[in-house]
Design a protein around this nucleic acid. Structure first.
Length: 1172
RNA sequence: GGGCGUGUAGCUCAGUUGGUUAGAGCGCGUCGCUGAUAACGACGAGGUCCCAGAUUCGAAUUCUGGCACGCCCA
C-alpha cells in the first residue's frame, strides 16, 4: 500500500480485551481537560435552540440507580440534538428547600419536633440545612459526571440562592396583586401534643388498628321536632362543632316510625332494616323520598354552644341581581356525593374543621353566600387538642379523645342518642410519640387560586407531547380536572419565605417582589440582624439573608396605619413552587437574565419519572399558566391586570415534550435461614456458590436497608457507565417500569460494547498489517465525512464497489435514517434497535464475508482498498451514531480511528455532526436480495447440520428452489457468497422444484379479508384442499387462480395468495418461507480429500496459536500419518495448506523436539521458523 | 374505595392501522468456525400472549367483566 506517512503503520492493533471502566475514566479526564462540553456548545453558538429544562433533583440523600435512568435520558436527547445542529444549553439545578432537608438535619442533631428546633435555634438550624444540601449536591455532581451526563454544573441554579428566591417572590407578588393568593383553612393531620402538622409520609407510618365509637344521633327538625334526622358519626368529639348534615341527593330515604316510642326518623331506605336490627326495634316506613327532597331542612344541633353564641345567623346568597335570598348559615341538610349506604345511616354529620371532605362541603356552602355574609368555620377545639368555650363547661379544657364517652353519656341523658357501637379501624398515631393519636385539624394557610386556571391548564396540557401519550388524558389530565386550590404555605423553617408583610394594626397586607424593594420601604428596620450575624460569622452564605430568621426581623412603616409596623407572616412556601418556577427563576428573571429567559422558554424537552405528575410537571404547568399567556389576564375584580402583565410574553405552555419515565425496581435472590437471617445476592450466578441453600427470586422496590441493589458507583467500576446507559436505552421503552437487573447491565457489554470494539479491533489488526493509511484522502475534512474521504486515489465510488460493500453502506444509511426518525420522535429504544442491528450486520455478515479481502496477500488490490474504505467509513459513521448513547466508547473509538490525521480532525466525536442520510447509497432491493441470500445460507447450514455434514467438508452442489424467479438473476450473479458460506462447488437456482418440493397456496389474509369478507374461511379451505402445483401452474399461465366455492367462482390474483414450499421426504433439505435449499450429499474421494486438507489447516492454525505465533510468523509443519488418503490430500492441497498457514515446509513425518497435537488425521507438528 | 398503568419463552423485554407460523437478546442444548480467538456463527428446544366473555371471516392487539402486581390519590 501507499506510504504517505512517516511511521510504518498509522493504525495500531487494538487490545483484544478492553477494560471499559478504565477507558471511561481516561475519557472523563480528557473531556474535562479540554472542556469538550463547552466546545460542543460553542460550535453551536449561532444555531437554533433546542431548549432543555433540568428538573432539579432534591439534594437530600444519595443518588440511586433510578436517578441514573432519569439522568441518562436527560443526557441522550440533548447530545443527539447538539450533533444534529442545535444549540442545547443544559443548566443544572438543585432543589434545596423543604421538609425532607429539615428532617435529615433533625436526624443529625437528634431532634425532631418544632419545639426542639426552636429550642436549638432557627438560625443555626437553617445554616445546617444549607450545609446539608451542599454536601449532597457534591455527591450528585460526582454521579452526574461519571455517568457522562453533560450539564453545566458550574452555572447550576439553586433554589436557596437569593436571585432564585427573588424570582419566586416576584411571581408571588404578581399573584397576590391579582388577588389570587389568599388565606384560608387547610385541614391537616395534626399532632396536638407536639403542636405540629405531619406530612402524609409521616402519617402513613403511624397507622394502627383501634376501636372507636360509632354513634347514631338524633337531630330534631326545627319545623317539626317530633321528627329527627338519624345522623351517623365515628367521632363524637366533633359533634359540638357540627355544621351540617349531609345526604346523597340521588339516594332514597325513608321516614320511619319507631314501633315502640313513636318517634319518627329520616334515614336511608337501604339501611332501615340494618339499623332496626342493630337497635333491636322495629321501624314502620311512613313515606320515602329522594335525598334532594331533604336538602335545606333545618335541625337543632346536638350541642348548643354555637347556637347560643352565634344566634343562628343568616346571610345573603349570591343570586342574580334583584333576586335577593337569604339562607341560614348552619344546621341544615346539604348534599354530598360521598355519602354511601355501606355503613352508618345515610346521613352524615359534618364538622368541617375536622375532615378534609367535610371542609370541602363547607367551602361549597360558603361560596353560595355573598362576601362578608359567609358562615364561619365552627371549631370547638384549640390547637392543643382541648375543648374551648364553645362546649358545655364540663368539657372545657378536656382532651378531645378523652371526651368521647362523656359526650355520649350527655347525649344519652338528653335523649338524643339513638344507638351506640364500637368499631375497629385503622387510625394514625404520631410516629414518634406512639401513644398520641393524630386529629384532623384546620390551620390557617395560604392558597393560590389555581381553580380559576383549570381550563387554561387543560388547554396547555392538550398541546404537550407526552410520552407515553396516555399521560395527557389519563393521569395528568384527570389530576388537572379535579384541581383544587394550591395550598402554598408551610409552617416550617427552611424554605422560600412567603413575601407578605402584614400591618400590625389593620391586618392589611402587601407582597414584596425582591430584597431591594424591601430595603427601600420607609422606616426599614431589622436588617442589622443579618449584618451582625454575617459579621460574627463571615463564612455565612449571603443567600441566607432572604431566609428565616433574618428576613423575619425586617419590618417597615405601615402605609395603612400611622406609626404602625409591617411584619412578615411567618410561613415559608411549598418547595414544589420553587421547582415549578425554575423556567424563569433559574435566570433570576425578571430582575436579571431577560435575554436568557426569552430564548430559553418554553422547553422543547423535559423528562422525569411518573411520580412527578403531581410534582414538577404540575407545578411548572400551573405557574406558567398563571403568569404567562392567556392566564396573565386572569385576576379578581378590581385589580389592574394590565399593569401587572408580563409584557411581550405569550407562551402557551412551559414544555413541548415530556418523556414520563417508569419507576425502577430491583431484582435480587434471597435466602432466609432458621434464625430468620437473610442472605441477599444480586446475581443469579452467585447463588450457585451457596450450595444447599434455596434462594428465591424477588422483585421489588429498592431498599437502602435491605441493600437489594448495587450502587451506581459499583456498577461504574464493574461494567462502566456506557454499559449501564446502553442497558437503560436499548432494553425497553423508557416509560415502562424497569427492573434493574444487574445481569442485563453486564450483558450489554458483549451485546453491544464488545461487539463494536471487536469490529474496530478487527479493522486495526489488518490496517496495521497492510499499512492502510486513510491520510491518502488528502481532502479529508475535520469530521471525516464519506464525501471528504473520496479524495483518496484508491477510493472508488460506492456504486463501483462490490455487492457486499454496497450492501453495508446501504444498511448504514438506512439505519441512519431510522435513528434520526426515531430520535426526533423521542424514541430511544427503537433508535438503539436500529444501531444494534446495523452493528450485527457489520460484524456478523459484512466482516465475516469480507475476510478474504482483508487476508488477501496482494496489499494493493482495488478490492482490498474497497474493503478498507468501506469498513473505515462505516465504523466512523457508526461511532457517530452511537455517540449520544455510549459517549465514552464512541469517543475512544473516534479518537483511535482519526489518530492518523492528528490535529486535522476534531478531537472528540461529540463535536461532530450527526451522520446525514445519503439516499443514493440506499438500495432496498439489495437489502431484500441480501436478506434472501442470508436466508439461503442459513437454510443450507441447517440442512448440513441435520445431515451431520460439517462445513469443512466440501459438497458438490446445492439446489435452491424459489417460489418465483424475480431474484434468480441477482442470486446467480452473486452466488460466490453462498458457495463460500456453505462450502459447495456450485449453486443452482430454480423455480421448477417439483422433484424436491410440494407447493401449497395460502391466502394473503390482509388483502383477502376486505375483498371477500365472510368467505375467507371457505377460500382458505378450498386453497388447502386444492393441488398446489396445479394452482401455481394456473397462476403462472393466467395470472389468476379460479376457485369454485359453494356459491360461485372467485378469482384470486398473485397478490391475494402466497406460495409456500414444503420439502419432500428423502432430501437433505431445509425450508424457509419462500425458499427450499437442497443439498447434494454424495461425497466423492476428491471432496473427501479437500475436507481432510481443511481439517489439517484448522489443526495447524490451532497449533500456531498454541505456540504463540504472531500473525505473520512463518512455520514448519509435519503431519504424522500412515493413511494414504491423508498423504494424497496433503499432496493435492499442499499449496493451499501452506499459504493459509504461512508454512514454509510441509512434510509427512515428525519434527524432533516438537510436541504433536492430536488430530483426526494423525499428529500435527508445528515449529516456528523457516525450513533452513 | 377511586384514578392510571402493567401482565407475552426459564430471565429481561419488543410486538406498527386487528391478518392466521407471536419475535429479539440472554440462559439452556447440539453442532460448527478458528489470522476478531478469554472472541464468533448456526441450528434446536422452550409460549393456553393472566382468566372469562363479547365484537369480527379473523383478536396478543378492540370492548366488557374478573384476577394479580405497581404507582398516585382517598
Amino acid at each position: 500500500m501507499t506510504t504517505t506517512s512517516d511511521s510504518a503503520a498509522p493504525f495500531r492493533a487494538a487490545p483484544a480485551s478492553p477494560k471499559f471502566p478504565a477507558l471511561e475514566e481516561q475519557m472523563l479526564e480528557f473531556w474535562q481537560q479540554n472542556d469538550i462540553y463547552k466546545q460542543s456548545l460553542e460550535r453551536r453558538a449561532d444555531a437554533p435552540p433546542f431548549v432543555f429544562f433540568e428538573g432539579p433533583p432534591t439534594a437530600n440523600g444519595m443518588p440511586h440507580p433510578g436517578h441514573c435512568l432519569t439522568r441518562a435520558i436527560k443526557d441522550v436527547f440533548p447530545r443527539y440534538k447538539t450533533m444534529r445542529g442545535y444549540r442545547c444549553e443544559r443548566k443544572a439545578g438543585w432543589d434545596t428547600h423543604g421538609l425532607p432537608v429539615e428532617v435529615e438535619v433533625g436526624k443529625e442533631l437528634g431532634i425532631h419536633s418544632k419545639e426542639e428546633i426552636e429550642a436549638y435555634g432557627i438560625e443555626p438550624f437553617i445554616q445546617k440545612c444549607q450545609q446539608s444540601v451542599w454536601r449532597y449536591m457534591q455527591q450528585w455532581q460526582r454521579l452526574t459526571e461519571r455517568l457522562g451526563f453533560w450539564v453545566d454544573l458550574e452555572q447550576a441554579y439553586v433554589t436557596y440562592h437569593q436571585s432564585y428566591v427573588e424570582s419566586v417572590w416576584w411571581s408571588l407578588k404578581n399573584l397576590f396583586d391579582r388577588g389570587l393568593l389568599y388565606q384560608g383553612h387547610k385541614i391537616v393531620w395534626w399532632w396536638a401534643q407536639g403542636g405540629t402538622a405531619l406530612s402524609s409520609g409521616e402519617v402513613g407510618q403511624g397507622y394502627r388498628e383501634v376501636a372507636d365509637p360509632s354513634v347514631y344521633v338524633k337531630f330534631p327538625l326545627v319545623d317539626d321536632p317530633t321528627r329527627s334526622l338519624l345522623v351517623w358519626t365515628t367521632t363524637p368529639w366533633t359533634l359540638p362543632s357540627n355544621m351540617y348534615a349531609a345526604v346523597h341527593p340521588e339516594l332514597e330515604y325513608s321516614l320511619v316510625k319507631h314501633s315502640e316510642t313513636g318517634e319518627e326518623f329520616f334515614l336511608a331506605s337501604a339501611l332501615v332494616k340494618t339499623i332496626a336490627d342493630k337497635a333491636k326495634c322495629e321501624f314502620d316506613v311512613l313515606e320515602t323520598c329522594r335525598g334532594t327532597d331533604l336538602i335545606g331542612l333545618r335541625y337543632t344541633p346536638p350541642f348548643d354552644g354555637y347556637l347560643k353564641s352565634t344566634g343562628d345567623p343568616t346571610g345573603t346568597l349570591r343570586t342574580p341581581v334583584g333576586d335577593q335570598k337569604t339562607e341560614h348559615h348552619y344546621w341544615r341538610v346539604v348534599a354530598a356525593d360521598f355519602v354511601t349506604t355501606d355503613s352508618g345511616s345515610g346521613i352524615v354529620h359534618q364538622a368541617a374543621a375536622f375532615g378534609e371532605v367535610d371542609y370541602e362541603v363547607y367551602d361549597e356552602q360558603r361560596r353560595r353566600f355573598v362576601d362578608g355574609e359567609q358562615p364561619e368555620l365552627l371549631c370547638a377545639v384549640g390547637p392543643d387538642g382541648k375543648f374551648n368555650e364553645a362546649v358545655p363547661e364540663a368539657f372545657l379544657g378536656v382532651w378531645v379523645k378523652d371526651a368521647d364517652k362523656a359526650l355520649s353519656r350527655d347525649l344519652k341523658e338528653r335523649g338524643l342518642m339513638f344507638l351506640q357501637e364500637q368499631y375497629l379501624h385503622d387510625y394514625p398515631f404520631c410516629w414518634r410519640a406512639d401513644q398520641d393519636p393524630l386529629i384532623q385539624y384546620p390551620r390557617r394557610s395560604w392558597f393560590i387560586r389555581t381553580t380559576k386556571f383549570r381550563d387554561l391548564m387543560l388547554k396547555n396540557n392538550s398541546q404537550i407531547g407526552w410520552q407515553p401519550e396516555h399521560i395527557r388524558d389519563g393521569r395528568f389530565g384527570n389530576f388537572l380536572e379535579s384541581n383544587v386550590d394550591w395550598a402554598l404555605s408551610r409552617e416550617r423553617y427552611w424554605g422560600t419565605p412567603l413575601p407578605i408583610w402584614v400591618c400590625e394594626e389593620t391586618g392589611r397586607m402587601e407582597a414584596v417582589g425582591n430584597y431591594d424593594e424591601l430595603l427601600a420601604k420607609p422606616g426599614i428596620q431589622g436588617t442589622e440582624v443579618w449584618l451582625e450575624a454575617k459579621a460574627a460569622n463571615p463564612e455565612l452564605v449571603d443567600d441566607l439573608r432572604v431566609h428565616k430568621p433574618y428576613i423575619d426581623a425586617v419590618t417597615y412603616d405601615s402605609p395603612f396605619a400611622d406609626g404602625k409596623r409591617m411584619r412578615r407572616v411567618s410561613e415559608v412556601i411549598d418547595c414544589w413552587y420553587d421547582s415549578g418556577a425554575m423556567p424563569f427563576a433559574q435566570w433570576g428573571w425578571p430582575h436579571t437574565g431577560d435575554q436568557q429567559f426569552q430564548s430559553q422558554f418554553p422547553a422543547d424537552f423535559i423528562s422525569e419519572a411518573i411520580d412527578q405528575t403531581r410534582g414538577w410537571f404540575y407545578s411548572q404547568l400551573a405557574i406558567a399558566t398563571m403568569l404567562f399567556g392567556e392566564g396573565a389576564s386572569v385576576a379578581e375584580p378590581g385589580c389592574d391586570v394590565e399593569a401587572m402583565k408580563v409584557k411581550d410574553l405569550d407562551y402557551p405552555l412551559p414544555f413541548r415534550n415530556c418523556i414520563v419515565l417508569g419507576l425502577m425496581l430491583s431484582q435480587w435472590w434471597e435466602h432466609e435461614d432458621d434464625q430468620k437471617k437473610k442472605t441477599i445476592l444480586l446475581e443469579e450466578s452467585e447463588t450457585k456458590q451457596h450450595s444447599g441453600k434455596k434462594f428465591s427470586k424477588q422483585v421489588g422496590k429498592m431498599s437502602k436497608s435491605l441493600r437489594n441493589y448495587r450502587s451506581p458507583e459499583e456498577i461504574f467500576d464493574r461494567y462502566g457507565a456506557d454499559a449501564l446507559r446502553w442497558y437503560l436505552f436499548a432494553n425497553q421503552a423508557p416509560w415502562n417500569s424497569i427492573i434493574y437487573a444487574e445481569q442485563s447491565i453486564k450483558d450489554s457489554i458483549p451485546e453491544f460494547l464488545l461487539r463494536l470494539w471487536n469490529t474496530f479491533s478487527f479493522f486495526t489488526i489488518y490496517a496495521e498489517i497492510d499499512g492502510f493509511d486513510p491520510r491518502d484522502a488528502v481532502a479529508a475534512d475535520e469530521q471525516l465525512t464519506p464525501q471528504s474521504l473520496a479524495s483518496a486515489p484508491k477510493y472508488r465510488p460506492a456504486s463501483e464497489r462490490s455487492e457486499i460493500d454496497r450492501w453495508i453502506l446501504s444498511e448504514l444509511n438506512q439505519a441512519t435514517a431510522k435513528v434520526i426518525d426515531r430520535m426526533d420522535a423521542l424514541d430511544n429504544y427503537n433508535a438503539c434497535q436500529a444501531i444494534s442491528s446495523l452493528l450485527d450486520g457489520l460484524s456478523n455478515w459484512y466482516v465475516r464475508r469480507s475476510r478474504d479481502r482483508f487476508w488477501a496477500s496482494d496489499k494493493d488490490s482495488q478490492e482490498k482498498h474497497d474493503a478498507y474504505w468501506t469498513l473505515y467509513e462505516t465504523l466512523l459513521e457508526l461511532v457517530k451514531l452511537a455517540a449520544p448513547f455510549t459517549p465514552f466508547l464512541a469517543d475512544t473509538l473516534w479518537q483511535r480511528l482519526t489518530e492518523p490525521f492528528g490535529d486535522k480532525t476534531l478531537c472528540s466525536v461529540h463535536l461532530c455532526d450527526f451522520p446525514e442520510v445519503d439516499t443514493d447509497r440506499i438500495d432496498t432491493d439489495l437489502s431484500d436480495s441480501m436478506r434472501l441470500l442470508r436466508e439461503i445460507a442459513s437454510l443450507g447450514r441447517a440442512a448440513r447440520a441435520s445431515e451431520k455434514l460439517k462445513v469443512r467438508l466440501p459438497l458438490s452442489e446445492v439446489t435452491v428452489i424459489l417460489t418465483d424467479d424475480s431474484q434468480i438473476a441477482w442470486l446467480q450473479n452473486h452466488d460466490a457468497l453462498v458457495r463460500e458460506e456453505l462450502n459447495v462447488k456450485a449453486v443452482h437456482y430454480t423455480t421448477e422444484g417439483d422433484q424436491y418440493v410440494q407447493y401449497t397456496v395460502v391466502p394473503n389474509f390482509k388483502r383477502l379479508g376486505p375483498k371477500v369478507g365472510k368467505q375467507v374461511p371457505a377460500v382458505k379451505k378450498a386453497l388447502a384442499e386444492a393441488d398446489g402445483n396445479e394452482l401455481l401452474g394456473q397462476l403462472q399461465s393466467d395470472g389468476v387462480v379460479k376457485l369454485e366455492l359453494g356459491d360461485g367462482v372467485i378469482e384470486l390474483d398473485g397478490d391475494d395468495i402466497e406460495v409456500r414450499l414444503q420439502a419432500k421426504e428423502g432430501w437433505a433439505a431445509a425450508q424457509g418461507l419462500g425458499s427450499v435449499v437442497v443439498l447434494h450429499t454424495e461425497v466423492t474421494p476428491e471432496l473427501q480429500r479437500e475436507g481432510i486438507a481443511n481439517d489439517l489447516i484448522r489443526a495447524i492454525q490451532n497449533q500456531r496459536k498454541a505456540i504463540d505465533c504472531q500473525y505473520t510468523d512463518r512455520i514448519r509443519v509435519a503431519i504424522d500419518t500412515a493413511g494414504d488418503e491423508v498423504s494424497t490430500a496433503i499432496e493435492e492441497h499442499r499449496e493451499t495448506i501452506a499459504s493459509e498457514t504461512l508454512a514454509d515446509s510441509l512434510e509427512i513425518g515428525t519434527i524432533d523436539g516438537v510436541e504433536a497435537a492430536a488430530s483426526e488425521h494423525g499428529g500435527v507438528f508445528v515449529a516456528k521458523g523457516n525450513a533452513s
